[in-house]
C-alpha cells in the first residue's frame, strides 16, 4: 500500500494517453468478436435483411453446406494433408535440430540461414515458382503436391523451435547411455524422444494449426480433389452469389471450429507469444 507505483499515470495528459491505449485495444477486440459473431449468427439465420438479427434461426444451412461443398471429402483431405505434414515435418525437422544443437560443424550458420529463409519469405512470393516445379514433376494438383508444398515452411519451423529445446538437455545423459553401449538410434528412441516429448508436441501442434490455416501454398498446388478447408472456403467466398451466403458462413464456422479446437489444445502447451516469436527471436541474433 505504502509503495507507490512509479509508472502509474499521474498527470492528466498521461491518464488520457493511458485511456486512449485501452480504448484502442477494447475497440479492436470488440470489433473482432462482433465480426466472428456476425458470421456465426448468419450461419444460423433464415432471412437477414434490414434488421439487427435474422428473422428466425435454423440449422439447415449446415446440412446444405455439408452437401453443396462436399465438406465430408474436404475435411478428409484436410486431415490427410495436415496429418502427413505434421508427421513428415517432425521426422525431418527433429533430427536436423538435434544435429544443429549438438554439433558445431563448419557452415552451421549457413544451414541456419537456409532454414530461416522459408520462414521469412512469404509463401506467396515463393509459392508460384514452387508450384511450377511441382507441376513439372507431376506432383501438382494432387495430394502429394499439397503436402510437399506445405512442408516447405513447416520443416524449418520445427528445426528452429526444437534447437533450444534440445540444447537444454544435458549431453551427459546421452554420453552415459553411449557408455552402456546404446547406439544413436536407441539413444534417440529411449532417451531423447521421451525427454523431448513436450517440445516436439508443442512444435507439431503449432505446425498443425498453421497448416490448417495455410492458404497460399495449398491454393497454388491443389487440384479439384485436393482442396483443404481454407481453400474451399476461399472459392466459396470468391463465387459468393452462386450459393446462399448462410451456407458459406456455415462452412466458415466449421473452419473456425476446426482451427480453434486445435489452437486451444496447442495453447495448453505453448505460450501464445511463441506462435509469433519463437523463430523470429532466432532471426534477431
Amino acid at each position: 500500500m505504502a509503495v507507490r507505483n512509479p509508472f502509474a499515470p499521474q498527470t492528466p495528459g498521461e491518464r488520457l494517453w493511458a485511456f486512449a491505449m485501452w480504448a484502442f485495444m477494447i475497440f479492436f477486440i470488440v470489433n473482432f468478436v462482433a465480426m466472428v459473431t456476425a458470421v456465426v449468427v448468419n450461419s444460423f439465420g433464415t432471412r437477414w435483411l434490414n434488421a439487427w438479427l435474422p428473422a428466425a434461426f435454423t440449422t439447415r444451412w449446415y446440412v446444405s453446406a455439408w452437401n453443396e461443398f462436399q465438406l465430408h471429402d474436404v475435411l478428409i483431405v484436410t486431415f490427410e494433408v495436415v496429418g502427413a505434414v505434421v508427421l513428415l515435418s517432425g521426422l525431418l525437422g527433429v533430427p536436423a535440430a538435434y544435429a544443429l544443437a549438438r554439433r558445431n560443424f563448419p557452415g552451421k550458420q549457413l544451414v541456419i540461414l537456409l532454414f530461416l529463409l522459408p520462414m521469412l519469405i512469404p509463401p506467396i512470393t515463393f509459392g508460384i515458382p514452387l508450384a511450377t516445379v511441382l507441376y513439372q514433376a507431376h506432383f501438382g494438383g494432387n495430394l502429394s503436391g499439397v503436402i510437399l508444398a506445405n512442408l516447405v515452411p513447416t520443416v524449418p519451423f520445427v528445426v528452429l523451435v526444437m534447437i533450444p529445446f534440445i540444447e537444454q538437455i544435458d549431453p551427459r545423459i546421452e554420453s552415459a547411455a553411449r557408455v552402456f553401449g546404446a547406439g544413436t538410434f536407441r539413444i534417440f528412441i529411449h532417451i531423447l524422444v521421451p525427454l523431448l516429448a513436450p517440445g516436439i508436441l508443442a512444435a507439431l501442434l503449432l505446425v498443425l494449426v498453421r497448416t490448417i490455416a495455410m492458404f497460399e501454398l495449398t491454393f497454388f498446388t491443389a487440384g479439384p480433389g485436393s482442396q483443404t478447408l481454407v481453400v474451399a472456403l476461399y472459392y466459396a467466398v470468391y463465387a459468393a452469389g452462386v450459393r446462399a451466403g448462410q451456407s458459406i458462413d456455415a462452412m466458415a464456422v466449421i473452419y473456425m471450429l476446426t482451427t480453434l479446437a486445435w489452437l486451444l489444445i496447442a495453447l495448453r502447451f505453448v505460450d501464445p507469444t511463441q506462435i509469433v516469436t519463437r523463430a523470429k527471436r532466432e532471426a534477431a541474433h
Binding site: 467466398v237 458462413d249 466458415a252 482451427t259 509469433v276
Partner: peptide, 19 residues
C-alpha cells in the same frame, strides 16, 4: 490476439464482408 492470426486472412475477409 492469437485468434485472428490463427484464423487467417480468408476467414477475416468473409467475416468483414458481413460485419
Amino acid at each position: 490476439l492469437v485468434i485472428p492470426i490463427t484464423l487467417g486472412t480468408v476467414l477475416i475477409a468473409e467475416g468483414l464482408l458481413i460485419y
